[in-house]
């Protein structure tokens, strides 16, 4: 179970008090999105305290998340949200109040909101009547708010012409990670580009000598110089963020495990392109 507790769930009282508290916080919030965030936090902590089936939640959240963003799951985008958030979720919820505005309504609010909505969908299974009531109330609130608040065109402050060429840049930045040179050249040349040159990266040099490529589309008079990030960050970041979570400090482990922690990818099922 993720972020929950194994004992019997609390009854209605705590759920309703959370509801009140959440709504009160929303009324007091200076910014409407701040209020929404705080309420989201209250909802999620309530779900946790009511004995949510976290395992189902984690996998469903990841599935629905990708689906909602119009992203098809592939090898590069897979995450077990439940596992990664397991050890410290209650602490995050506790700290929400002070820094709820965070990055702001543009980034975190919709993202977090989406996450909370996913918790309220059928994938998550309440274990008590109290939790079921909380589910119904939370779902209704979020749905009402959703229908009354669609994003305006002002949120899309990008140059249309730029987006097209920036997308090609993004694809090039993605394809240049391919290890096999011929495969990489074929992928880079997909959008009508001629690959002028690919400078391979020596695996031992890593940060010092990056891999790069020059692409040219004479018809559209466009030249792209693309650098590749380095894979070495991937392991580092995984070590920093995930391994200690999977292997909490203070827990006695065999010395061999300490010296040879499980490989981040195989242990946690994560696959990323990290630069």
């Amino acid at each position: 179970m993720v972020g929950g507790k194994d004992g019997p769930p609390n009854e209605n009282e705590s759920a309703h008090s959370c509801d009140k508290q959440a709504l009160q916080q929303e009324d007091e919030g200076e910014h409407p999105n701040r209020g929404e965030l705080v309420r989201g936090a209250a909802l999620s902590s309530r779900l946790i305290s009511n004995g949510w089936d976290g395992r189902a939640r984690g996998s469903d959240a990841a599935d629905a998340d990708n689906g909602d963003m119009g992203i098809s799951r592939n090898d590069d985008v897979s995450i077990d949200a439940g596992r990664s958030s397991r050890p410290r979720w209650k602490e995050w919820a506790k700290h929400l109040g002070s820094k709820a505005a965070g990055i702001g309504d543009y980034v975190i609010e919709p993202f977090y909101r989406q996450w909370v909505v996913q918790q309220l969908h059928e994938g998550a299974r309440p274990r008590s009547r109290g939790a079921a009531a909380a589910l119904a109330a939370g779902r209704g609130q979020l749905q009402r708010q959703e229908s009354g608040r669609r994003a305006s065109e002002a949120d899309l402050t990008v140059n249309v012409a730029e987006v097209e060429q920036d997308l090609e840049c993004a694809q090039a930045a993605h394809e240049i990670y391919l290890e096999d040179e011929s495969e990489c050249a074929a992928a880079l040349g997909k959008g009508g580009y001629t690959v002028v040159h690919i400078q391979p990266q020596d695996g031992a040099s890593k940060l010092q000598h990056p891999k790069w490529a020059v692409l040219c589309d004479a018809r559209r008079a466009r030249v792209i110089v693309v650098y590749r990030g380095t894979w070495s960050w991937s392991d580092t970041i995984h070590d920093l963020v995930f391994i200690p979570a999977a292997l909490p400090c203070g827990v006695k482990v065999a010395s061999s495990s300490r010296l040879n922690p499980p490989a981040p990818r195989s242990a946690l099922g994560l696959k990323f392109h990290l630069g």
Binding site: I176, L207, Y227
Partner: peptide
């Protein structure tokens, strides 16, 4: 148009 691009460290 000449574009310099890359992801992360790139």
């Amino acid at each position: 148009t000449v574009l310099f691009t890359g992801h992360s460290y790139g």
